[in-house]
Every structure is written in structure tokens, then in C-alpha cells.
Design a protein around this nucleic acid. Sequence first.
DNA 1: ATGTCAAGACGAGACGTAGCGTCTCGTTAT
DNA 2: ATAACGAGACGCTACGTCTCGTCTTGACAT
Lengths: 206, 206
Amino acid sequence: MPNAARRSERSRQAILESALALLHESGYADLTIEAIAARAGVGKQTIYRWWSGRGAVVLDALVEQAGASEPPPLPDTGDLEADLRPVIRAIVAELADPRLSATTRALTVEALTSETFAEQVRDRLLRPQLGTIVARLRSAREAGDLRADADLDQAVELLIGPMYHRWMLRTGPLTEAYADGLLDLALAALGAGQVAPGGGTARSIR
Amino acid sequence: MPNAARRSERSRQAILESALALLHESGYADLTIEAIAARAGVGKQTIYRWWSGRGAVVLDALVEQAGASEPPPLPDTGDLEADLRPVIRAIVAELADPRLSATTRALTVEALTSETFAEQVRDRLLRPQLGTIVARLRSAREAGDLRADADLDQAVELLIGPMYHRWMLRTGPLTEAYADGLLDLALAALGAGQVAPGGGTARSIR
DNA sequence: ATGTCAAGACGAGACGTAGCGTCTCGTTAT
DNA sequence: ATAACGAGACGCTACGTCTCGTCTTGACAT
């Protein structure tokens, strides 16, 4: 049980920076603890003392990077689809770029390997990142643009689940047009843009 | 380049069976080429001669297993949601069970690691398995239960993407209720959007 | 405030282990 | 005959633990 008060801040930062640099340069397969230690000018033990493995290092690095700049809330122009479109496009564009999505690839592999790691990714990275979308959806729901009983977490999942699936299994192109189409579909599911003449939303099929 | 005509069928089957058995017993992390070879009573070279790695072995094993019994087409009662519900429930149930989803976990990790492997999984396993759903959706589209311009591949992705995402990152429970709710949402997105004058069931989001 | 000092984190790297992928061996099957 | 086969040796890489001196830090004494 190491003493956190005596921890070397210099080493900590060097390790996190080296991990991200190596990940972008060589990919997750070549990201080893020994390579991180060598690049950071640090003993292996210093890494093992504070982290459980390479996945934990990468996660910490990304959390720190994200936490440095608090993400601004999405604009609320009253047009939900227009407000979300650039965000969805940006996520799709990031996934389409192998270099940019290297970190996501790494975290996903690790999440599939360890249950507790998946929970860490979810709580420390995914939830904060998607928080701005959830907030915008909430305001839309209050404005009556979404069904009153819409589950916001499930709504976000409906939006990003398909694109992650397409990214992982390469079931189709990750283009701007795809992003727009997916957003359109997801909002249709959530009852957005429905002008109900008589009162209730018109969304019944059978 | 080995001569496929002289290949040992006995060894081939022993390898595929051992791989699946070990995967279910110990998980993907402990699934090594050496363990497969030992269990199958086979030399390591016999595996490397015919497969590129453990991922390829698992994929072949699953393709063979799936190909043994051609999946029957889904029933077409005219009620799309009722016809799809048991399928979606079954997929969710499989993901909820760590033992049953061990193979999916393995394939996903491998797909994230290799582009060509992802394409193999998509073409040889995923597409055939989801084919029955696509067929049922096609018939629904022709019957006017779906938007005439609905993209069927994207429709399937909208259905299974969110549950894979939930499974990987543990963003929520994988229950029957979740399966039903997701199906409801996805069909709302794809629906013709017409008001059922008499007795259409209201779609709840959850 | 400033000096002293033990505790412990540090960089470096040796160590044993596991599994990789390649390479021989005889042996066996075609 | 020939080539795949079972078996396993081989060198390699990275793992995670450990043992060195060295350096830093916080606590205490002056």
C-alpha cells in the first residue's frame, strides 16, 4: 500500500503522456508497460505501484485529458436535431479515423476483458462525455419535443450504440450522411418533431 | 502453402471442439494456442499450418457450428413486433449470460484488433445470423408496416447496436423488459408513422 | 526558520514464467 | 514418395516481482 502523499507528480505525468503518445503512434497491440516505462524514463515498478495494467494507465490519461477542459454545454436553439447534429457528426468522424479512435479501441478491448474496468470507463469517461447530450435531451423533453416518458440514458444509447457497432464490425461507412441519417432515425423513435394534431403523439404502427 | 487434400479431418475437428470447450470453461484470456493443441492432442504446427491465430480458430468453430443447422426463417404472422420479440429477447439473454457470451466477447476483441478479421466476422457469422431478421423486416416493409425508404441493414443495426453497447459497457441491465423496450423504440423509428385509428397500442419508451 | 534524518518512492534492471511463432525430429497416412 | 502429423526444443518478448543504490519528502529537533 504505497503512500500517495509521497508520489512523484513528474513521473505520473510522464507515464500518462508516454502512454497516449505510444498509443497514437503504434497502436494498442504494441503498447506495453516496458515501452511506456522506457519512454517515460521511469522504472516499471513505478507503473505497477500505481496502476493495475496498461488499460488503467490509458484510462487515467484520458480522464485527465478530458477533465482538463470542462466541456461546454450544447447550445439550445430550440431545434434539437440541429443542436445534436454537429456532435453526432464529430463522434462518427472520430471513429472513422483510425488514429483518433485508437484510444476508444483500447478501452473497448479492456472493457471486454474486465468487468470492473468496463464500469470505470462507463463512470469516469463515458458518462461525463455523454452528459452534455443527455442535458440537451432533457431540455427537449421538457419542451415537449420528446415523449414525456423518454428514458434519456436509453435515448443516448440508441444514438451511439449503432455507430459503435458499425465502427467495430465495419458493417457500413462512417460518413456525415450516416451520422445525419442515424440522428434522424433515433429522434423519430423518441417522438421528436411529432406534431400531434389531436393531442397524442402519432407513433403507433399496428 | 499446405496441401488441403491431405489435411486431417480428425485433427481439424478436435481443434475446433477444444477451442470452444476451453473458451467456455476458462474464458478468452486463458485460451492459448498451446492449450488448444494440448487438449486436442495435436501439434502446435498443425494449428499454425491452417489458421492465423486463436481468433481465426474460434471464428471457424462458430461458423461451422452455425452452419450445421440452417436457421429457420422467422414466422410472419403479420405482427412484426410479436415476430421479432422472441429473437431480440434471445439475443439479450445470451449477452446477459457470461458463459454464453464468451464467444461474442472473443470475436469482438479480435475484430477490434484486426480489420480483416472484423470483415470475416461480419460476412461469415454476423450477416448470416441476422439474415432472418432482415428478411422479416423486408416483408414488413412490403406490407407497409415500415417506412418505404427504410434501410434494412441500418434497421438491424439500430436494433442490435444499443444492446451490444449496453453489454460491453454495462450501462444498464440486460433483461427481457429491456429487450421489449428496445424493440419498441426501434420499430417506432422505422414505423410508417401512421395513426392507428381504432386500436393501436401506444408505444411506451419505458 | 532551518537543519537532520528515517521512510519510502524512485530509476534501473535482473529474474523466473508464459506463450508466442518457427524449427526440427521421427511417424503416419495417402 | 511425399507431405501432414504429434511432439517438443528453441529463441524471443513481455509479463509481474524482486532487489539494488539513489533521491525526495515530510516530521521532528533545534
